[in-house]
C-alpha cells in the first residue's frame, strides 16, 4: 500500500475543497442573483471543465503556469520557483478542474431560496449581504455540503489533469489514482487491487455519511422537495 500517495490525495482534496469553498460562495451567489444579460457566458466558462477532456484542460493549465505565460512568470518571480510539477501547481489545477462541482450545486441551491423570503428580509431592514449570511446560506446549506463532497470526491478521482500538470513525483504529486496506474503498468495487480479497494471504500463511506446526514432533505437540488 502506498500511503504516501493516499496522503498526497487527501491533502490535495482537502486543500482544493477549502479553497473552492471560499472562491465559490461569492461566485455562486453572483451567478444565482445577477441579472446581467451576458451572465450565461460566465456560466459556460465555469462549466467548461465538465466537458473538456482532462488532457486538454491539463495542457492549457500547464501552458498558463509555464515560464512563457505572464501568470507563470509572476508566480515564479513571487515565490522563487515555477509552478508546474509541484504540489502547489496541482492544487491550482484541481481548483480549476473541480470548479463546476463546487459552483453549480451552490448556485442552484441559492437560486432555489424563495424570493419572497429574501424580500421580506430586506423590508425588515437587513442588508443584502447580511440577508445572504442569515437567510440564504442557512437555507442552502445542503447545496454547500453537496458542493464540498462532490469537490472532494472529484479531486480524489482526478487523473488526466494530474498527470499533465503534476507529473508523477513520489511523495509530492503522485496521487492515488496515478499510483494505481503505475502499479498496473508494472503488472503489480495485487497492489493495484488493494489501493483501489481502499479508494472504493473511502468514497463509499464519505458519501454514506453525507447522505445519512441529509436523510430528510435529498442532496440533489433537482430532487429536493419544495
Amino acid at each position: 500500500m502506498n500511503w504516501d500517495a493516499i496522503f498526497t490525495s487527501l491533502r490535495l482534496a482537502s486543500l482544493t475543497s477549502l479553497i473552492l469553498l471560499v472562491l465559490s460562495l461569492p461566485l455562486a451567489a453572483w451567478l444565482a442573483f445577477s441579472r446581467w444579460r451576458w451572465r450565461f457566458l460566465i456560466e459556460s466558462v465555469v462549466a467548461l471543465p465538465l466537458v473538456l477532456p482532462p488532457t486538454v484542460l491539463g495542457f492549457y493549465i500547464l501552458t498558463a503556469m509555464g515560464s512563457r505565460s505572464p501568470l507563470g512568470r509572476w508566480y515564479a518571480d513571487l515565490i522563487g520557483s515555477p509552478l508546474p510539477f509541484t504540489f502547489e501547481g496541482l492544487v491550482f489545477a484541481s481548483v480549476i478542474y473541480s470548479l463546476p462541482f463546487a459552483v453549480q450545486p451552490m448556485a442552484s441551491s441559492f437560486a432555489a431560496v424563495d424570493r419572497n423570503l429574501v424580500e421580506v428580509s430586506w423590508t425588515l431592514g437587513i442588508s443584502r449581504l447580511a440577508t445572504f449570511f442569515r437567510l440564504i446560506l442557512p437555507s442552502a446549506k445542503n447545496g454547500v455540503v453537496t458542493a464540498l463532497v462532490l469537490t472532494f470526491a472529484h479531486t480524489i478521482g482526478e487523473f488526466g489533469v494530474v498527470l499533465m500538470v503534476g507529473g508523477n513525483i513520489e511523495g509530492v504529486t503522485r496521487t492515488v489514482s496515478i499510483d494505481i496506474y503505475d502499479q498496473v503498468q508494472d503488472l503489480n495487480y495485487a497492489a493495484a487491487s488493494r489501493t483501489s479497494l481502499v479508494l472504493l471504500l473511502f468514497s463509499f463511506i464519505v458519501l454514506a455519511v453525507v447522505y445519512s446526514l441529509n436523510r430528510n432533505s435529498p442532496l440533489w437540488p433537482t430532487l429536493r422537495k419544495r
Binding site: N116, E119, V120, T123, I126, S139
Partner: peptide, 20 residues
C-alpha cells in the same frame, strides 16, 4: 429609498416565514 430604509412592515401573500 431602499426597502431596508423605509421602516415598513411587509406581509406577503404566502407569509414567507423563514423555515429555519
Amino acid at each position: 429609498v431602499i426597502p431596508q430604509k423605509r421602516n415598513i412592515g411587509y406581509v406577503p401573500q404566502d407569509y414567507a416565514l423563514f423555515p429555519h
